[in-house]
Design a protein around this nucleic acid. Structure first.
Lengths: 153, 153
DNA sequence: CGGGATCCACGAGGATACTG
DNA sequence: CAGTATCCTCGTGGATCCCG
């Protein structure tokens, strides 16, 4: 672990940094986004709140499962996701339902039947997730390669 | 908490469900995404792994901070985020650095100075996050309203 | 079948003190 | 200033048993 790395500062440059301009085209915009996404110090930040919920361990997978297969029964989902526990699938689905991302329909039959399905809002969120997954797939190799380089040092 | 809600099944409909077709336009695509994002049962899923790392509690905020303000020193970031602990900022930045999303430059001065900055890869990830935040802002009101409805019942 | 209820383990993350 | 080290809390999530 070398403590000294990368490009050291040009000695004459105290305040005026020579940033790459293209990278900061949206600087103002990103500052605004940061402000919006970080309202916690003024209590309750809905954006942060929502991001927290959608980034828990299972929500994204549950949404993809419903998006890919439409209506699903409880055990169908459990099987498709594979390594989720009964409890966490229940908790996850209840949370998604509470945000109106998923509908839950109980059929008064014996044995009982319950079907879950994405709401339009749920679909729109999944579209965003797809972009994230695309990004991850696209850059997966690069990241993995870099991680392994770290280990060698 | 009523056990019976929403649209009960049309009695005659056993197998052929009358799904809204537009909602399932990309069904195959989403099944594929689900498969890719859920390779855990076959051990190690890079996509899940990457998504997990980038969607932890602090990574997104750190990335926005750097995206909005360019180069930042440790305590500048800590102040801007506000409620992150020293420890977690360190851990978060080290993780981001390990994925080559952030560069860390140490200046051999006294007192020491360390600057963090997004890499191009980090910027490209931030662009994805921006879309998520946009989504959250757009639907925030709807979700909050729905949550409050839940409480009344 | 689709959960609810309970108990428990573990790891993320906070608080504090110390250091090069 | 920018961490490291240590201890401890607490919430997430797994395992198990039970129920309508």
């Amino acid at each position: 672990m070398s403590k000294q790395e990368g490009t050291p500062a040009l000695p004459g440059n105290t305040e005026v940094t020579n940033r790459a301009p293209q990278a900061f085209a949206g600087e103002k915009k990103y500052q605004e986004i940061f402000r919006v996404a970080n309202t916690t110090r003024n209590q309750l930040c809905p954006v942060r709140d929502i991001v927290a919920r959608i980034s828990d361990k299972w929500s994204m997978l549950a949404i993809f499962a419903l998006g890919g297969y439409g209506k699903l029964r409880f055990n169908e989902m459990k099987y498709k996701i594979g390594d989720i526990s009964q409890r966490m699938l229940t908790v996850t689905l209840r949370n998604l339902e509470a945000d109106s991302l998923v509908t839950r329909t109980v059929f008064p039959e014996i044995p009982p039947r319950v079907e879950y399905e994405l709401t339009p809002l749920g679909y729109s969120l999944m579209e965003q997730f797809v972009l994230l997954v695309d990004w991850a797939e696209l850059n997966e190799e690069q990241i993995m390669k870099f991680r392994k380089l770290q280990i060698r040092n």
